[in-house]
Design a protein around this nucleic acid. Structure first.
Lengths: 125, 125
DNA sequence: CAGGATCCAGCTAGATACTG
DNA sequence: CAGTATCTAGCTGGATCCTG
């Protein structure tokens, strides 16, 4: 036992919800966007510059999805040129902790996983 | 502040590792397989029957990927007919806790997310 | 029983061009 | 500046058939 309540139970409804979140958060850009928004509101193009390799289309799509889920807020300032700021909602901020836990696990076990992969690939001619 | 160490920092290397894990764990079947293996070793076809809707190909692929990452162990009993048991490695078991935390978040905020979606979809004619 | 090999539909994400 | 629209390559996952 390492601490947590120990799920053990395995209801399909629960797993569906969990997997939903995992899939949402596991896509290519979501976490990068959330992390970049962690510090405070950021404008569209600043966000784009801050996330290396993201296309404009993907940034738009990722932000829309996050907005739809209530994790990110979009504030438009109707000026010329237009200004749009994105920020994390309280719900969005609350996501950082659980993800941080998984992140901790990832960091702690990265080497072990890499070694396992190398071993597997070596044995698999 | 809600408890956890507060990452705040945002190194690209760390995020890459985290996102890797999230992507691995966020795919369609991985968590279902891990959860089904939680109780103990399971044979291939038992696993298949236990996970509703999974195709043989996807089960094989998911198991191979988990085995490669060192999360699942594969034990072959060379009998006729052959018997293959899959089980979680210690590393695989250690993944359940962090995922459980995220799962807790998912369960706790499912309604809020659903409401946010409904609102967003309603406003988006 | 436990897969490997093929084939194929659908979605994802990127590149590019255009707009209020 | 902050998008939308369009087109397309590539990957994911499912169906089907075959084998030690």
């Amino acid at each position: 036992m390492t601490g947590v309540p120990a799920p053990e139970v395995h209801s399909p409804i629960q797993c569906k919800a969990v997997n939903d979140i995992l899939a949402r958060v596991g896509d290519k850009w979501t976490m990068q966007v959330v992390m970049t928004l962690s510090a405070g509101p950021v404008r569209f193009n600043a966000l784009r510059r801050g996330i290396d390799g993201i296309s404009q289309r993907m940034l738009t799509r990722t932000l829309r999805a996050l907005e739809r889920d209530g994790l990110v807020a979009r504030e438009v300032t109707p000026s010329v040129p237009p200004r749009v700021d994105y920020s994390l909602t309280p719900l969005g901020r609350s996501l950082r902790d659980p993800v941080g836990v998984l992140g901790g696990w990832a960091m702690a076990n990265r080497e072990e996983i890499d070694e396992a992969r190398a071993r597997f690939d070596a044995e698999t001619d």
